[in-house]
């Protein structure tokens, strides 16, 4: 009984990955649907983030008394990474609820719905990266060899996203309040994470900041784009988080996979 459930959970993950033509198409379809009949299409994502970052950058550089040449690239990278992570977390809670129609008619690995959601956000992320690229070129930011670490950082974010999708997806389907709780929690997380502010501006009680796992995620991802010394301990923390998170997510999937359709 138990081993059968473990096998089915493994198969679910395996087959979800193998069904890439399906979730790649569905994810694209989501983006196309959102921007159909608009002249700019998905480049609205790029434009709106560009405007926000430049306006906020100029304002906050003054407020925080930072050099704009440092602050604007810092803020741009922060906002792009934040938008990827926060949307994945938020959409995770409704990932199965959104797919209710399909889940109740066509049996397929549950992971497909999560990968579709992640792929959709990765597409948005690439559009947003154009803003970062433009700002990096404008301010002549040279990441050096660290740029080769950046894809790994993004990969770890996405990998964790799959785990979060399983965890919050299952919880959100069973307990519908989770969606609201997650939304408020993410809002708070925005202020606790160095997206807009720099960790170096805080002198004492640094452990409070460092106990936020997202601090380390931002560390490794930003470091890949802005250069500097490689934060090995942050890499360690993120890897550990990935292993622990997936351990928990996998146990949830084993236990509740067959219940998801019943809770919809």
């Amino acid at each position: 009984m138990q081993s059968g459930r473990v096998l089915k959970a493994v198969e679910d993950i395996q087959n979800s990955l193998l069904s890439y033509p399906l979730w790649l198409s569905l994810g694209w379809q989501d983006i196309k649907q959102r921007y159909r009949r608009s002249a700019l299409g998905p480049f609205w994502i790029t434009l709106s983030l560009g405007v926000t970052v430049v306006m906020m950058g100029i304002l906050y550089a003054k407020l925080f008394k930072q050099d704009i040449r440092f602050y604007l690239p810092y803020l741009a990278t922060g906002m792009v990474i934040w938008s990827l992570i926060s949307t994945i977390i938020n959409e995770s809670a409704t990932v199965f609820i959104q797919a209710e129609g399909i889940i109740k008619q066509i049996p397929m690995p549950f992971g497909i719905h999560i990968l579709r959601m992640i792929w959709r956000n990765v597409i948005i992320f690439f559009h947003n990266m154009l803003v970062v690229l433009a700002i990096m070129v404008f301010f002549r930011v040279n990441p050096g060899w660290n740029i080769f670490l950046f894809p790994f950082a993004v990969f770890l974010i996405v990998l964790n996203g799959y785990g979060v999708g399983i965890l919050l997806g299952i919880l959100g389907t069973r307990f519908r309040d989770i969606v609201q709780i997650v939304a408020s929690f993410v809002q708070i997380l925005f202020f606790l994470t160095p997206v807009m502010w720099t960790a170096s501006s805080i002198k004492n009680k640094i452990w409070i900041i460092q106990s936020n796992p997202l601090f380390h995620v931002f560390n490794i991802a930003r470091n890949g784009l802005l250069g500097g010394e490689i934060p090995w301990n942050s890499w360690g923390v993120v890897l550990l988080m990935t292993v622990l998170g997936w351990g928990l997510a996998f146990r949830m999937l084993v236990r509740y996979r067959a219940r998801i359709a019943y809770w919809l």
Partner: peptide, 18 residues
Amino acid sequence: IGMDFEASGLENIYLRGL
């Protein structure tokens, strides 16, 4: 189920097929 009304008939054939 799964049909996208903003997409063309052709796109929907692919979508439903997948």
